[in-house]
Design a protein around this nucleic acid. Sequence first.
DNA 1: GGATTAATTCAACATACGTAGAATTCACCG
DNA 2: CGGTGAATTCTACGTATGTTGAATTAATCC
Lengths: 214, 214
Amino acid sequence: MTRDAHEARSRTGRRSGDSGSKVAILAAARLQFAEYGYDGTTIRGIAAAAGVDPALVHHFYGTKERLFAAATELPIVPSEAINAALASREPGRSLGTHLAYSALALWERADMRGAFQAMLRSALTSEQAAATLRDFIAEAILGPVASAAAGADAGNAAYRASLVATQMLGLAVGRYVLRFGPVAQASKEELAVAIGPAIDRYLTGDLGQAGRGH
Amino acid sequence: MTRDAHEARSRTGRRSGDSGSKVAILAAARLQFAEYGYDGTTIRGIAAAAGVDPALVHHFYGTKERLFAAATELPIVPSEAINAALASREPGRSLGTHLAYSALALWERADMRGAFQAMLRSALTSEQAAATLRDFIAEAILGPVASAAAGADAGNAAYRASLVATQMLGLAVGRYVLRFGPVAQASKEELAVAIGPAIDRYLTGDLGQAGRGH
DNA sequence: GGATTAATTCAACATACGTAGAATTCACCG
DNA sequence: CGGTGAATTCTACGTATGTTGAATTAATCC
């Protein structure tokens, strides 16, 4: 009927070729969850960033929670990565320093950074995300700790691990979330040698005479 | 007109006596900001907890941002508290240990805990709150660091301070926000002696040969 | 090439939120 | 004891959110 313009350009319907929308949505979700946390991220915002209708997000990923789960799914198995890292330690470098460096390197891998930051930022508002982070930390840190402190102070392994976790966590929050100056700008190597010894002490050192020995 | 029940109980209007609503609202706000962060907290939720109409919250505190500012206003001046803490150090106790203990004690003061946790949890979703936290940390930590490392390594004061901040921050997040086991249950004294030496090292120790001297 | 399936958008619903304005009741000052 | 101001609630507006269902178009299979 030549209504309006003579080329009606149907807006709806499937597009020609491979649009890559599903991947684009997941990428946008990673970015936004990392930047704004779970609550601060909106499906509409993700859809807009991916150049797509909000309903399509639903079509692919169902609910927002499932999208979050997909976005924070790590491309590696933490314990394997840690073990691989431990195996590659150069002689002359302490365990703590190596651990700190490996963690920093891991966090900055392009395919990890988004998922990791999303998890970190969301853990602080969503109890569900917090539980996931707790498990992740337990898996990632308790292993090395147990192997390092085995025999020496096995009864305190969990305590030692949690101390290591505070330092690593503080580093991550300070560097990536709060981004305060020097720590955000320093190189991985610089931070590793600065923090490593503290971690070594948590792993195997003397934790004070407060009488926590079993 | 004896419509319905014979006692119409005007719901609106001022109540008799001192209701304490204003204080109740602020207390509820502190609790909820601490528990859910800025975005996760709703004015309606605060009003419900305070047993009050949402509009009353507005009447007293204006906008949500102003309520947040009121709720996170610390009852002390950080730098003064730190200075007071520094002055009370017993001989035989390291600066780092004393600092860690003082911070823990400060965080657990009833009148601080709410405001502090609200700030901490909100800083991770709201950039505005993050900026406030950065300033707070700078004020609270840079002072002691500067005085401790004065002369010895003055050029690196900011770097050293930020390292201290990562450890303190990680401790706070692990203990109060994520609440993972051992660190959440340990006593202040226990944590102080465990973490103190690490902080001492950040303050005045050797940070590695990565060549950051000016 | 017709039927089926997947991709895509539109329009809409049901909630929830922050906020504003008007109305009502009490306290207090003269 | 009359009037001014503060406290309190009700109703409502505008907007944003997660989610759903129907409609439309392209790809794919037989």
